[in-house]
Amino acid sequence: MTDLIQLQTELMARIDAAQDLAAVEALRVEALGKSGSISELLKSLGRMSPDERREQGPKINGLRDAVATALATRKAILEEAELDAKLAAERVDLTLPPPPERRGRVHPTMQTLDEMIAVFADMGFGLAEGPDIEDDFHNFTALNFPPKHPAREMHDTFWLPDGPTGERKLLRTHTSPVQVRVMQKANEKLPSWIANGQEPPIRVIVPGRVYRSDSDATHTPMFHQLEGLVIDRDITLGHLKWTLDTFCRRFFETDAVVTRFRPHHFPFTEPSAEMDVQCDRSGGSIKIGQGSDWLEILGGGMVHPNVLRNCGLDADEWQGFAFGLGVDRLGALKYGMPDLRDMFASDVRWLEHWGFSAFQAPNPATGLS
């Protein structure tokens, strides 16, 4: 009896002193394992007389139960302490905002350009492109600009240094040179990266960057332009008006758009006109399709016979119309951006505010995101 009490006292003390789960497990094996001290005592009951078993059995079983309970209690205490320590070390403060996640955005200019291309593509226009660096013939002469026209002067045009042969290149002031290249005969052997010339009928749009020495809230030295060209037989100014009216209704996503044509002058079209849209300027913003004010948004007209002849086409057989729109300016009007210069300022905050998600639902007017 004294030996059992001493063994229980010793085991209880060691269990209470165990500092980790490994120590508790070692004590369990030592006391209750197959060859443990208490297990050996239980085995000895078989060698005892019936009277001894009746006396010692309850005491040994009581010792086993007491030690097992102490081991389970100590194990639970140590597991809870270990979990608390782990939680304290790996705690995440859910009250803090998540770190900002940088996501790419579609620039408003590219969004606007995609919408414009989609509208004209639905009307059967193809796409043509050309070089940003042009020569005088394609940028001016072929488009019926007189030799002393003000647009040739330095205050409007970015001229490049004279070449080895004395020819001066320039940054194109409009995308109209691509119209010239499209109208020129296909046997000009144009480089593959320039839109190939083709015979009429022609129906193309020409998007791209253009450059002019001008900068204020509504003008930038580099901007994006989209021009259109249609060449066929029996083309009239009425075809031009229908094309531009249809474009405005679809682009601004309202059938309430009202337009008007005002006579104007462009060297490459005759007759020429500027087109206004009816708008409301109240409240510090411009709202298209309502109000009683007018806003000029584009220019166009019937292709000048001299331009047709300069491009190798018979002006007595072919005629057509051309027009030009500022991509950045139309985007600013549609989405309410006040200053065109912000579109080229490379300000990530501005782009996060005005940019478009590449994964947003398609625009019902254009079919584009």
Rank of each mutant, 00 (worst) to 15 (best):
T2F: 06
L4S: 00
Q6V: 14
A18E: 09
A18H: 12
A18M: 07
Q19R: 13
D20N: 15
E25S: 15
R28P: 08
M48V: 10
P50L: 04
K59E: 00
I60E: 04
D65R: 12
A66I: 05
V67E: 12
T69S: 14
T69G: 14
T73F: 04
I77G: 13
I77N: 12
L78W: 08
E80I: 06
E80T: 13
A88Q: 14
L96K: 10
H107G: 02
T109Y: 00
E115R: 13
M116V: 07
A121G: 15
A121Y: 00
G124R: 00
A128F: 01
G130M: 11
D132V: 15
E134S: 12
D136Q: 10
H138W: 11
H138N: 13
N144P: 12
A151F: 06
M154T: 08
H155Y: 02
D162R: 09
E167D: 15
R168I: 09
L171I: 13
A186E: 11
P201I: 08
R203A: 03
P207C: 05
S213Q: 15
Q225M: 14
E227K: 00
I235N: 05
K241F: 08
W242Y: 05
C248V: 13
R250H: 03
D255Q: 14
V257W: 07
P271V: 06
V277L: 15
V277E: 10
G283F: 05
S285F: 00
W294Q: 02
A315W: 07
L325W: 00
G326A: 06
M337G: 09
L340H: 05
A345C: 08
S346P: 01
V348C: 03
F359Q: 15
Q360V: 11
